[in-house]
Amino acid sequence: MTIRLKKLSSQVVVITGATSGIGLTTARMAAGKDAKLVLAARDSDALDKLAAELRAGGREALAVPTDVGLQEEVQALGRAAIKRFGRIDSWINNAGVSIFGRYRDVPLEDQHKLFQTNFWGVVHGSLTAMELMGENGGAIINLGSELSERAVPLQGMYSASKHAVKGFTDSLRMEVEKDGLPISVTLIKPAAIDTMFVPHARNYMKNEPELPAPLYAPEVVAEAILYAAEHQQRDIFVGGAAKMVSMEGHGVPRVLDKVMNLMMFRQQRKDQPSAPDRSDALYQPNGLELRQRQGGHENPVLERSAYTYLTTRGKPLALSLLVGGALLAAWKMSAPQAAPATHDA
Rank of each mutant, 00 (worst) to 15 (best):
E60I: 03
K6G: 15
R234P: 00
Q75H: 15
R104G: 10
F119W: 06
T25R: 09
R84S: 07
L321I: 11
K36A: 07
S145W: 08
N203S: 15
N142R: 12
P218L: 10
A330D: 14
R79W: 07
L70F: 12
Q268M: 15
L70N: 11
S90I: 09
A335Y: 07
R79H: 08
P182V: 10
A329Y: 09
M205H: 13
G180R: 15
Y204W: 11
P273R: 11
A76S: 11
I140A: 01
V198H: 00
G144W: 11
G295P: 13
A326Q: 13
E109K: 14
I99A: 09
L77A: 06
V74F: 06
K162H: 08
D194G: 05
S98C: 13
S320C: 03
G121R: 01
D43S: 04
S159K: 05
R28N: 14
M130A: 11
Q292C: 12
L211M: 03
G32E: 13
R293V: 08
L37T: 01
S148D: 03
A318S: 14
H231G: 00
D43L: 05
K178M: 09
K206C: 06
K332D: 03
T19D: 12
P65A: 02
Q11Y: 15
F168R: 03
W331F: 07
R293P: 02
T128L: 07
A51N: 07
L154M: 12
T169S: 14
V176C: 04
D34P: 13
A306H: 07
Q111C: 06
D277M: 08
T25F: 02
R150C: 05
W120N: 15
F197N: 05
S279T: 14
A95P: 01
G69A: 11
I225N: 01
K49N: 01
P199S: 08
K166G: 12
M264G: 01
L172Q: 05
A164V: 06
V301N: 03
V245G: 00
A80Q: 06
I141A: 05
Y227D: 10
L50V: 10
G144D: 10
V185C: 09
A30M: 12
D280V: 12
T342L: 15
L154C: 10
E149S: 09
N207R: 05
G325C: 00
N203K: 14
R87K: 14
G57T: 06
S126K: 02
Q233L: 07
A222L: 09
D110I: 00
